[in-house]
Computed example of a mutant assay.
Amino acid sequence: MNAATLPIISMTSLESAAGLAALREAASEVGFFYLTDHGLSEAAQQRYLALTRTFFQLPTAVKQTIDMIHSPHFRGYNALGSEMTAGRLDAREQFDWMNEELALAPDQLRSPWQKLIGPNLWPSAMPSLKPALTQLQQTMSHITVNLLQKLCLALGVTSNALDHTLGSQPYTHAKLIRYPAQQAQQQGVGAHKDPGYLTLVLQDAQSGLKVERGNEWVNVAPIPGALVVNIGELLELASNGFLKATNHKVESPTGGIERYSIAFFMAAQLSATVPVLPLPSHLKARALGPSTDPNNPLLTDVGNNVLKGRLRSHPQVTRKHYCDDQLRHLLAKSFAHLPTNEICNECLA
């Protein structure tokens, strides 16, 4: 696949029936598309990518002061080889931030996902990072909420059919990502699907993102100014499988070239349960149920669906912050029905 064959959707086209039809086809047949005319200028994108490069150029000791190991909420810096996908270490360096919130006291926790709620970690050596990324978070949130409402219209339901799951603001999770050059091609991030409603990816000129189509992996070449959008598991659940959450991965760059990107994930509030939308009959007939993976079942309760991915991806954070007696009890109660114990053997023991 090249830039000409991956669907290109203009946000401005979604005011028309033809535009909504094109969106519906892209989201149901491919699960990935480019989004243009979205309101985040190419110049602004370049400024955010420049900020990303500046962050990763900070001294290692400075970045380690905000290492994710210090955050029970899975926020902060991850050095190369700190995150796992599909059971293997990823060759990427990254910084994660989410909604800025106050953490709950231990005696307030009723479900393990509530421990995801909390503040971000920001580097004091780079004070410009917090306001810039907070603004980006607001902009991306606006784009994804607008796009989610257009997707609802494309599915033949009201534009606000999923608004009640968002509340006053959606749950958001974003990453600054650096893929350093490798001697030989390897897993930058392994094959996976995203757990939320929608993902936006802002990528530099270096390719590497690949999407699974049938029995092959096809390249998602960067298009200047365009954001890459992919459908998440929650939309696959909400559409009973009509929309597709598609496997994707990133291969590490070689030849001395690095790749920088920013990924933004939007989901329902962690406390929400995803409904199945009442699709019109002609679409409902094509909705054959969400995909199933016995090692990674989809959960309609958003908090637990998000948490299981974080626990698996960051085992060092899991061991430090989720293995006390209280969390072991809550995890066992929430995840006892899952046929997988690799979330955290210590916590599920």
Rank of each mutant, 00 (worst) to 15 (best):
L151S: 03
S159I: 02
V189Q: 04
I177D: 03
G167E: 07
V145L: 15
H164Q: 12
Q182W: 06
G190M: 09
S159D: 08
Q182T: 14
Q185D: 07
T172V: 13
V189M: 05
Y197M: 09
G196Q: 09
K193V: 07
Q183C: 07
G190T: 12
V145Y: 03
H173V: 07
P180F: 15
Q183H: 05
K193Q: 13
D194W: 13
I177T: 10
A191E: 05
A191R: 13
G188H: 00
T172F: 04
G190L: 10
V157L: 09
Y197D: 09
Q149T: 09
A161I: 13
H173Y: 08
G156T: 14
Q169H: 15
Q186F: 02
Q186I: 07
N146I: 07
I177Y: 01
Y171R: 08
Q187I: 11
K175E: 05
T199K: 02
G188L: 00
L176M: 10
Q169K: 15
H192S: 06
P180M: 12
L166T: 13
A154D: 02
H192A: 08
I177F: 02
T165V: 14
R178P: 00
G167M: 11
D194R: 12
L162H: 07
L151E: 00
G188A: 00
Q182L: 09
S168V: 04
Q185Y: 06
Q169M: 08
G190D: 11
R178Q: 09
V145K: 11
H173A: 14
H173T: 07
Y197N: 09
H192K: 03
T165E: 04
Q169I: 05
Q185C: 14
L148I: 07
V145H: 04
T158M: 14
G188W: 00
Q182R: 12
A191C: 02
L153V: 02
Q183N: 09
L147E: 02
H164F: 10
L148N: 04
S168Y: 03
G156Q: 13
